[in-house]
């Protein structure tokens, strides 16, 4: 009885501590939501204060983003959505093919290719950034969607993930499909790919989020404001003059809220997608 009571108190204590930690972790996001409802000029002058007059809360920042003032912002939004969705389609298509082949076939050079995948994973992109930037200039791709997407299309992390996933698929299915006269490509697209559903979902989220939040590379290759993605565009509003803070705050909220809503519905896939590296090799 006494140990039971003791455990109960420990349980309440730990749960309370976690509630506080969670509150601290979520505090910046809650602050942003509140900040977006406060007059932008106040934020500029006072910073974000714990004390504010609830009567002053207003939707004016959001009205501003939905007015002519916000046209540029929606242009960035469309760019981000287009780039992210095209990247998801392309990278899932190509990366799953490669990962599948590395897992399911025994062919000469397979191990070399897999080692190369792991090797690229360890080399920071920033080291290749300048030559790649030069290459984009030479190819005339500067300021295009393609330039933003190109380095992410055959993502080694996704190839790695698909390979690990495919290893667990039943190879007997391939044999029986062959006996039925299915081609190797038919086997992949009609039989095996449908079995890879959860891995497609996880990688769609990883690639989509990477692209949605990508910053340094788009900063290099995008030049005109009409081509900017959300992070690049928002960064241009982050000036010390604060003349666009209405857009900055409501725009930031509208950038992360859809992602958080998706997370609430597809938590499992977010978690497996964003913790790829932990997959055992």
């Amino acid at each position: 009885m006494t140990t039971e009571k003791k455990e109960k108190w420990v349980s309440i204590l730990i749960t309370t501590i976690f509630a506080i930690i969670t509150l601290i972790a979520l505090f910046p996001i809650i602050s942003l939501l509140i900040a977006s409802l406060r007059p932008a000029s106040d934020l500029m002058r006072e910073g974000l204060s714990l004390f504010f007059n609830p009567a002053e809360l207003t939707f004016s920042n959001y009205l501003s983003i939905f007015s002519d003032n916000g046209q540029q912002y929606w242009r960035w939004y469309i760019n981000s959505i287009l780039i992210s969705s095209m990247l998801i389609v392309l990278s899932l298509f190509f990366s799953s093919m490669v990962g599948y082949a590395l897992a399911m076939y025994n062919f000469k050079g397979r191990n070399v290719l897999f080692v190369l995948v792991l090797f690229i994973l360890m080399i920071p992109f920033e080291i290749l950034m300048l030559p790649l930037y030069q290459l984009m200039i030479t190819l005339g791709l500067i300021d295009s969607y393609l330039a933003v997407m190109l380095p992410l299309i055959v993502a080694p992390i996704a190839v790695f993930f698909f390979r690990q996933y495919c290893i667990g698929l039943p190879k007997e299915l391939m044999e029986s499909a062959r006996i039925d006269g299915c081609t190797e490509y038919g086997i992949f697209f009609k039989i095996m790919a449908p079995l890879m559903g959860p891995s497609f979902a996880a990688m769609a989220i990883l690639q989509g989020l990477t692209s949605w939040n990508n910053f340094l590379w788009p900063l290099l290759v995008l030049r005109s404001s009409d081509m900017f993605t959300l992070p690049i565009g928002l960064a241009t509003l982050l000036t010390p003059y604060g003349n666009n803070y209405e857009l900055l705050f409501s725009g930031s909220v509208l950038t992360i809220v859809p992602i958080i809503i998706l997370f609430l519905f597809f938590q499992r896939f977010f978690i497996s997608g964003l913790t790829v590296g932990g997959v055992k090799g």
Binding site: I29, S31, L32, A35, L230, L234, A235, L238, F249, I259
Partner: peptide
Amino acid sequence: LTSVIVAGVI
């Protein structure tokens, strides 16, 4: 889930 830029704004 937040981008560094949005986190930075906050």
